[in-house]
Write a protein that binds this DNA or RNA. Structure first.
Lengths: 165, 165
DNA sequence: GGCAACCGGTTTGTTATCAAACTATACTGT
DNA sequence: ACAGTATAGTTTGATAACAAACCGGTTGCC
C-alpha cells in the first residue's frame, strides 16, 4: 500500500525494503517545529507507558498523583493540580476514586474550611510502590535513549513548562 | 491557602512572597523522571498554542495535517496518521471536516480501491498560510526558550519518539 | 483460481482532559 | 463590619484521542 500516487512527489528510495517501512512522507516545515517533536515524543512515551501499566489496571494519571501525595503529606488538591500539570477539575474524579478505593485520606484543613489535605493510606503506599516499579522500568528506557544528556533535556523541558505563557 | 497542614513536611521558605507562589510542593522522585517533564512541557506548550490559535477558530490538530498534506500532495490517511503521530481513527473526523469545509480533496487511488490521496485546495492553502503564521509565532517562543540547544533537543525528542516501543 | 491472512479506512465506545459555571469560604480595603 | 473580590473544590459540557470491531479490498500461498 505504501506509495501509490506519489512517485513524483516523494523522495523515497527503499521500495524493496523488508523493513517495516519508514520514509513514506516528507515532514516538511513541521520537522523544524519544537512543538511537533514534543508532541510526538510525549505521545509515544505516554502510549508506551500506558501499554506497560494499563494491563495491571494502573491508570496512567495515578502515578504522578500518588507520588506527589506520598512526598507531600497533607498536600491540597490545588497544589496537586499544579504539581501534576492537570486542571483541578480533572483531579476531582481521580481523587474521588482514590478516596473510595481507600488509597488516600482527606484531612479537613484547620484554617480553611473549603480545603483539605491528602495523605496516603497503607494501601495507597502499597499501590504507589507497585506503580513505582513499573514507572521506573519505563523511565529507564527513556534514560537509555537520552543517555548522558538527561540533565540537559530535563532542564530544557522544565524551562519550556515554566516559561511558555 | 498555601501551606496549612504541612509545616513540618515542607521545605518552603517564602511564606511572605508577594510572587504568585511557586514552591508549594516537593516534586520528589517524580522530578527525576523524563516522562514527567515531557508531559508537563508538552502540555504547557499545547495549551499555549491552543490559547493563541483557538480564538481564531483554528483547531489545534489541523496544522500538522494541513502542513503534511501541503508538503506531500497525494498522501494517504495512513501515512498522515503516522506522520502526525495520531491514530488513523482520530484522523477520520478531521479529514471529513476538511473535506466538507473544502480545504482538501480526495483522489481515488488508481491502484488500491480502498485508499485515496489527499491534496490541498486553494482554500486549504490559504488556511495553511494562516495557521503557519500563528504556528511560527508560537514556535518562535519555544525557540527563544531553548536557544541554541534546539537541534539537540529535537534530536533527543526524535529519538524518543522513534525508539520507545 | 480460490482461500486465508493482511491492510486501509470508518464506526462505535470509552477515557482523559480542559474550561466555564457554580458554591462556599476567605481575604482586603475602606 | 461590610462589601467586593479572590480562591478551593465540584459539577457540567465539550473535545480530542485511542482501541477494538467492522467492511471492503488486496495479496500471497497452495
Amino acid at each position: 500500500m505504501e506509495t501509490d500516487l506519489d512517485d513524483q512527489t516523494m523522495s523515497r528510495d527503499l521500495t524493496n525494503a523488508s523493513e517495516p517501512q519508514v520514509a513514506e512522507f516528507e515532514p516538511g516545515i513541521l520537522d523544524t517545529y519544537i512543538a511537533y517533536h514534543l508532541r510526538l515524543a510525549q505521545n509515544a512515551s505516554f502510549r508506551a507507558f500506558q501499554r506497560k501499566t494499563g494491563q495491571h489496571d494502573l491508570k496512567p494519571g495515578w502515578f504522578a498523583v500518588l507520588s506527589l501525595i506520598g512526598d507531600n503529606p497533607g498536600i491540597t488538591p490545588m497544589a496537586l493540580s499544579r504539581g501534576s500539570g492537570r486542571d483541578k477539575s480533572t483531579l476531582t474524579p481521580v481523587l474521588r476514586d482514590m478516596l473510595t478505593g481507600g488509597y488516600v485520606e482527606r484531612i479537613a484543613s484547620a484554617t480553611d474550611r473549603r480545603s483539605y489535605g491528602l495523605t496516603l493510606t497503607e494501601a495507597g503506599k502499597c499501590r504507589l510502590a507497585e506503580f513505582s516499579a513499573r514507572a521506573a522500568e519505563h523511565d529507564a528506557r527513556l534514560d537509555a535513549i537520552v543517555g548522558e544528556q538527561k540533565a540537559e533535556l530535563i532542564a530544557l523541558l522544565r524551562r519550556i513548562a515554566a516559561e511558555i505563557e
